[in-house]
Design a protein around this nucleic acid. Structure first.
Length: 1141
RNA sequence: GCGGAUGUGGCGUAAUUGGUAGCCGUGCCAGACUUAGGAUCUGGUGCCGAAAGGCGUGGGGGUUCGAGUCCCUUCAUCCGCACCA
């Protein structure tokens, strides 16, 4: 063979590799493993475009490199084959999505094969195949039967939770509202038990606000919604309250955050994830509601308005009327404590259990032995139990319950003999109860402990979350989200109507509107007031839709002087402002709020003089001390909605018995998708699965929603390790050997979706003992996007008063339009050009006729920007000769096209860089490039384009150069006459230097994923070898090995010529030998005063003194120092000499 | 608004991490060969200047013998999040 016939060569070798299963990987534990993974594609109907292979080429190069270095490399590929487009297509055509998906996959496969990737196709996975999604369903079942135990910070089987319940220990569920019942677990009905467990399950069913997309007929996850519209299709999305399956990813928020520190992922991506998780620490603060007077409440006036009397009017714990008497009792009791009481007080006092207890405390007409007001728990120690005592105790318990106190009793003996158990029981009870806000009025502050026993005021409070507790003294109002359940409770009668109106208005605003005009300030006063926890001032309570119901407590404290949103709100409604932080610079508080976290606290009582950072700490301290609130961490991350009202996804393996969900038996998996007549919701609005004939399990109805697109992709990398296993998702042996992905390559657009979910599931599977690792990928590379270049052309439009505009089908060269718009071209000239275009038109003239154009006036013309398909544009020049009018201009209708050309006779198009997409007509497929230049050229070129991580618009300028390089490489082996000219001569020093310089560079670059620079190194190497006229096997052979990951076909071909019968795939990466690069001399740059004046070749072993002599003698240096004495001579060996005068 | 990134010839980019700015490739200019071609080869090509030389890494300032690289400041572009308290 004489010429570089890439087409033939590539086809032959692809065939050879396939036939010999050369890329098949065994679990060969004798070799070190290396796992190189690409994010698997969704097989869309458009096929691969030139952007897809960018990452695949990079990973292929890396995989090949690792193989040549003796690693056992796992490099698989598969398809994320469930998804919306296939289903949308199915709805339109009635064709089963599996069929279109299969077709698309075949097309993808064909295209990938064409590029010579070294994937082990025997391990291919498809998420839509039952033998794959069987395990996705299996994982779902595991998630359902597990809960996150915050004690040891990991997921556990739900059984461990039930055991706790049986022991009476009730962990606080993620929702924050624990069940509290004195009944034993076993005595609860199945229904209640399941309901309780649902509060804890990692996969759970709950009613919550979701992103509902009516056009797609399904809910979407937060990361599938961008700017209030669906990511796929761009349909509007609204908030809707629905019963939904969700994944409790929020339980993992902190670990997902921590985990980022130990993985080698790009910093911007980690930052995006941190942002998305959105951890912020601060404090909750309770603002007690000020009891309105009966007159204000309206209770006196009319019973019908009594429903607004829900504000507890300050439950003084002691009945004031009998206080004096109670005080006596209390005093007596304190003196005559029983042993048990004494012992228990030792345990409870000083907040030993984490909560403040009081003893001998009056609650209405009783004295409780011990009470924790912030939890509403009374602990009683009884003496001997006789019957009347029992009855009396029962009565007390009942009574206290009415006042919202839990009662727990122990006998004297119990306390003494088993203090530890008693303590544990109290602890468990405490942690199961919600917090209450307890406060005291300032007058009570000065009372003696005994006198305080009179009771403290327990009132309902609005709890807010703030990251700036240091600005607590700057609070001038409190705002609730319109959805906040307190709104209804607190609104006073006179504001009832307005508040209701406002809520209706807020609901009517779609998510998109709400996001679109963030600047629009709306809100409504409720009539209610709360009390400032430190100053006791009355603070008005507002509602406003700038407060989000789903974050924190759905309520904020308004500090208009130090929060820009509060500032805007206050300004709009004329609310006062209080400065409490002194800025470090001049600040005009009239103009804006001072939000910075630097400065000194002022007007803030105990915080005065503290720096913001200290003040925050101090404020939290005080808030906790006073039982006003608690230091707290909030996450922005929401639980991920897991159900989709769609057909083309994994069925959720759940059935319902009496309305209670149960998981299917694992042995019955996979639960395959049923056949349906249509891929649309039923008439009753049920998801498509409800159309199936018998969608049931053992006679019970099955769940009809399916899993979201990200389900399969959240664990697929582990399936590749053991893809044909039918008993497990992967064997322990395979998992232990392959462990995790060493290098994962894919786009950064998955930063908050896939890459977060896959980390979540990995951690979960790790917790449950199914995986040996808790992060899926050690290293991640984000390849940049290859953007498309969209072309546009202007169409002349005639605007008419009172009539619709006329599109003329006259298209103008972009520069002509610009010249006209910039007045470089007169209207007459333009008109002339338009009329002339009729002589050069395509087809006959239909409409508008020339007469209409003759009447054109300056006021009646406009230009319409239209898309042109990329295949008809070469370097921004419209190739109108190939123009296919039926497809290639948007808004086509039957017509004849005319073109107004510029002076060069060209039609110039304008262009924009956009995402490559079928709908934008800017897709370039690899097929044409491969046909024209070959896969090796495309591979090299895509790498040569620039750094892998960088996004860049696709252009083919420069592809010639890369192709030329391959031909030059070829010419090292074959001369023009097609004769093999490789010799067996020993290479000389110069040749070895060139080779080893390149080996060094190629090795370093590949390790750094700097593929563009190594391509350039190859070019230099080939250029230099050609110059040296080097055709020696000992040099060329090694060169081939280092080029082979990039251009495997040509290298395999040339290799086979010099090493017949062997494959370069099995070769060894050459070892860099630094000896060949050793130099004796160096061309020193010599500068005078930092300015380069000459270079001087000097021996490398020269020291400063010799160098100085040589340099100073030099006439050029003499000239520049102008006879002055050098102040200093800087000499860096092997680098530079600088003479300073 | 917050967060992240990037600014270097006509263009894509490179620079061993503070040490000769512009490698490699395109494009352009000139030449050679020629079957007159969008092939191949050779030379040139940051800008200004006839040259000597001067100026040059978005702008301004600083540190240093020396700055594309470090620090401060400012501008522009792109990406992500976006009323997250």
């Amino acid at each position: 063979m004489s010429e570089y016939k890439f087409g033939e060569i590539e086809k032959n070798w692809q065939q050879y590799w396939r036939d010999n299963h050369i890329y098949k990987v065994e679990d060969d534990t004798s070799k070190p493993k290396f796992y190189v993974l690409d994010m698997f594609p969704y097989p869309s109907g458009a096929g691969l475009h030139v952007g897809h292979p960018l990452g695949y080429i990079a990973s292929d190069i890396y995989a090949r490199y690792k193989r040549l270095n003796g690693f056992n490399v796992l490099h698989p590929m598969g398809y994320d084959s469930f998804g919306l487009p296939a289903e949308q297509y199915a709805i339109q055509t009635g064709q089963h999505p599996a069929i279109t998906t299969e077709q698309n996959i075949n097309r993808y496969r064909e295209q990938m094969d064409m590029l010579g990737f070294s994937f082990d196709w025997s391990r291919e996975v498809k998420t839509s195949e039952p033998n794959f999604y069987k395990w996705t369903q299996w994982i779902f079942i595991k998630l359902y039967h597990s809960w996150y135990n915050t004690e040891n910070n990991r997921s556990e089987s739900i059984e461990t939770l039930v055991e706790k319940f049986k022991k009476g220990i009730i962990p606080i569920p993620p929702s924050g509202f624990p069940y509290s019942s004195n009944a034993s677990w076993d005595s609860l009905s199945e229904n209640v038990q399941q309901e309780i467990l649902m509060q804890y399950r990692n996969a759970y069913l709950s009613e919550s606000y979701v992103n509902w997309c009516p056009a797609l007929g399904t809910v979407l996850a937060n990361d599938e919604v961008k700017d209030g519209v669906s990511e796929r299709g761009g349909h509007p999305v609204e908030r809707k309250l629905m019963m939904q399956w969700s994944m409790r990813i929020t339980s993992y928020a902190d670990r997902l955050l921590q985990g980022l520190d130990k993985i080698d992922w790009p910093e911007p991506l980690k930052e995006t994830q941190r942002n998305w998780i959105g951890k912020s620490s601060g404090s909750s603060v309770g603002f007690r509601l000020t009891p309105p007077s009966p007159a204000e409440r309206g209770t006196e006036s009319s019973p019908s308005e009594k429903k607004y009397n829900k504000v507890p009017d300050g439950v003084a714990t002691a009945d004031k009327r009998i206080w004096e008497k109670l005080k006596e009792f209390s005093r007596e009791n304190r003196k005559n404590q029983t042993e048990g009481e004494k012992r228990l007080w030792e345990e409870l006092r000083n907040s030993n259990l984490g909560f403040k207890f009081r003893r001998q405390h009056a609650i209405q007409k009783f004295i409780a032995d011990f009470v924790c007001l912030s939890k509403g728990l009374v602990v009683e120690v009884d003496g001997e139990i006789h019957n009347d005592q029992k009855e009396y105790d029962e009565y007390r318990t009942q009574f206290l319950r009415e006042y919202n106190f839990e009662v727990i009793r122990f006998t004297n003996d119990e306390v003494l003999s088993n203090t530890l158990e008693v303590k544990k029981a109290i602890s468990a009870k405490l942690s199961s109860l919600p917090n209450r806000i307890v406060g005291s009025t300032s007058e009570e502050e000065n009372l003696s402990p005994l006198e305080r026993g009179r009771g403290e005021v327990v009132r309902e409070a609005i709890e807010v979350f703030t990251t700036r507790p240091d600005t607590i003294f700057g609070v001038t109002f409190v705002t609730l989200a319109p959805e906040n359940s307190l709104v209804d409770k607190i609104t006073t009668p006179e504001y009832k109507t307005q508040v209701e109106e406002y809520i209706t208005y807020a609901k009517s605003r779609s998510e998109r509107e709400r996001q679109a005009d963030v600047k629009k300030i709306t809100g409504q006063f409720t009539g209610a007031y709360v009390e400032h926890p430190f100053t006791g001032e009355d603070i008005p309570v507002w509602i406003g839709d700038y407060v989000l119901a789903g974050y924190g407590t759905g309520a904020v404290m308004g500090v208009p002087a130090h929060d820009s949103r509060d500032y805007a709100f206050a300004k709009h409604f004329g609310l006062p402002r209080k400065q409490v932080v002194k800025p470090t610079t001049d600040w005009d508080f009239e103009k804006e709020s001072y939000d910075e976290k630097v400065g000194t606290s002022i007007n803030s009582d105990f915080l005065n003089g503290l720096e913001v950072k200290e003040a925050i700490i101090k404020a939290i301290e005080k808030i906790e001390e006073e039982n006003i609130g608690k230091g707290k961490t909030n996450f922005r991350l929401r639980d991920a909605i897991f159900g989709r009202q769609r057909y083309w996804g994994e069925p959720i393996p759940i059935y319902y018995k009496d309305g209670i969900p149960y998981t299917m038996d694992e042995k019955d998996l996979p639960k395959q998708l049923p056949e349906v007549d249509k891929y649309l919701p039923t008439e009753d609005g049920e998801p498509p699965l409800a159309r199936a004939n018998d969608w049931s399990y053992n006679g019970f109805p099955l769940e009809t929603t399916t899993m979201p697109g990200w389900a399969g992709s959240s664990w697929y990398m582990f399936r590749y390790m053991d893809p044909h296993n039918t008993g497990e998702f992967a064997s322990k042996k395979a998992l232990d050997y392959w462990k995790d992905v060493d290098v994962y390559i894919g786009g950064s657009e998955h930063g908050t979706g896939h890459l977060l979910y896959v980390r979540f599931w990995t951690k979960f599977l790790y917790d449950m003992g199914f995986l040996p690792v808790d992060e899926p990928a050690k290293k991640l590379i984000n390849q940049g996007m290859i953007q498309g270049r969209s072309s546009f052309i202007y169409e002349l439009k005639i605007t008419q008063t009172n009539l619709p505009d006329i599109n003329t089908h006259v298209f103008l060269s972009d520069d002509v339009v610009n010249n006209y718009l910039n007045s470089k071209l007169s209207f007459e000239e333009l008109k002339n050009g338009i009329l002339l275009s009729y002589n050069d038109s395509y087809g006959e003239i239909i409409n508008p006729d020339n007469s209409l154009l003759i009447q054109l006036t300056e006021d009646s013309i406009a230009f319409d920007k239209k898309r042109v398909a990329i295949e008809f544009v070469d370097n921004d020049i419209l190739n109108y000769k190939n123009w296919n009018k039926s497809i290639y201009i948007s808004d086509f209708d039957e017509a004849i096209y005319r073109f107004v050309k510029n002076e060069e006779g060209e039609i110039v198009t304008s262009s924009e860089v956009e995402k490559m997409s079928k709908s934008k007509w800017n897709v370039v497929t690899p097929d044409d490039i491969v046909a024209q230049y070959g896969a090796d050229t495309l591979r090299l070129y895509e790498m040569f384009l620039g750094p892998l991580e960088q996004s860049k618009p696709w252009n083919t300028q420069g592809i010639e150069g890369v192709h030329r390089f391959l031909r030059k490489l070829w010419s090292l082996y074959y001369n023009r006459d097609g004769n093999n000219i490789v010799t067996n001569d020993e290479p000389n020093a110069a040749e070895l230097k060139v080779l080893h310089k390149t080996i060094k560079k190629a090795t370093e670059d590949i390790e750094n994923f700097s593929f563009n620079t190594s391509v350039s190194a190859f070019m230099i190497c080939v250029n230099e070898l050609l110059e040296l006229d080097c055709h020696k096997k000992n040099v060329l052979e090694q060169l081939l090995v280092i080029v082979s990951p990039y251009a495997p076909h040509i290298c395999e071909e040339l290799w086979s010529k010099i090493n017949p019968g062997t494959s370069i795939i099995k070769a060894e990466w050459p070892k860099f030998n630094p000896e060949y690069l050793v130099e004796n001399t160096f061309h020193y740059p010599i500068s005078v005063n930092g300015k380069l004046r000459l270079t001087l070749e000097l021996a490398l072993d020269l020291e400063l003194a010799d160098v100085e002599k040589a340099v100073m003698q030099h006439e050029v240096v003499q000239k520049w120092i102008e006879g002055k004495q050098p102040k200093k001579i800087v000499f860096v060996k092997g680098k530079i000499v600088n003479v300073v005068v």
